[in-house]
Amino acid sequence: MSSESLTIIEPKSGWQVIDFQELKEYRDLFYFLVWRDFKVLYAQTILGFSWALIHPFVQIVLFTIIFGKIANISTDGIPYVLFSSVAIIPWTYMSHSMTQSSHSLIQGQQMLGKVYFPRILFPITPVLSRTVDFGISIFIVLCLMVYFKVSPTWNLALFPIFLVYMMAIPCGIGLWLSSLAIRFRDVKQAMPFLIQMLMYTAPIVYTASSIPENYRILYSLNPIVGVIEGFRACLLGIPIPWSYVLPGMMTSVLLLLSGAYYFKRMERIIVDVI
């Protein structure tokens, strides 16, 4: 730390960009926040990290029975278990990290009022800590792929891109909702509905191709659609449906940027308003 560093404190100014220099200085704290998050997640449980497997596993079984067997939803020839699990696992990650990120500021208000650090660390912490869960549960998909003898294709090379895309969505939504929640606690009440709506508007239990042609563009603006379709295509080796993926990516970039700006604008007043 140089003794030349100078802190100027002034009344809040309007739209500011993210201070990456400052984030870099606080990277150790960020690391420990993420680490604390996943360390604490399954503390004092018997099953520990197995919960990361159990949660999606139960959902996959349920969906396969209800939508695959009883409702008999068409999946373009893919076995329903495989079809749904490829979608449920990224979805579980997104819904969990989105919820946690939206509540992060309210939950951490005690700490916010006592010490300064870049507030943005709070909503982005769950986005990273939840990837541990995601990493564990992706194991289910791998097992199913082996069982159904799905051979990996070159599509897999795109996996990192979809991973980043998948993380951008809860990040953007979390930034927006966590900063809205400090003033309006309605966010907490509305969160379960939002999650449910997002889930049914994404092709998790059904195929995107069952949406009528005229509505496809509108449908594909939902960023979740692109992630699910992308994951499906890249893991199962079907052609990547770019018409779903690209508009969704655009929306998520927009969400992320606008979220970051809005958060930055709210950042300094958090403690006064919360």
């Binding site: 802190t7 002034e10 009344p11 916010l112 403690v271 006064d272």
Partner: peptide
Amino acid sequence: ITPPTIGKAS
């Protein structure tokens, strides 16, 4: 932790 409404500090 909280910004001033007016004034400046360095």
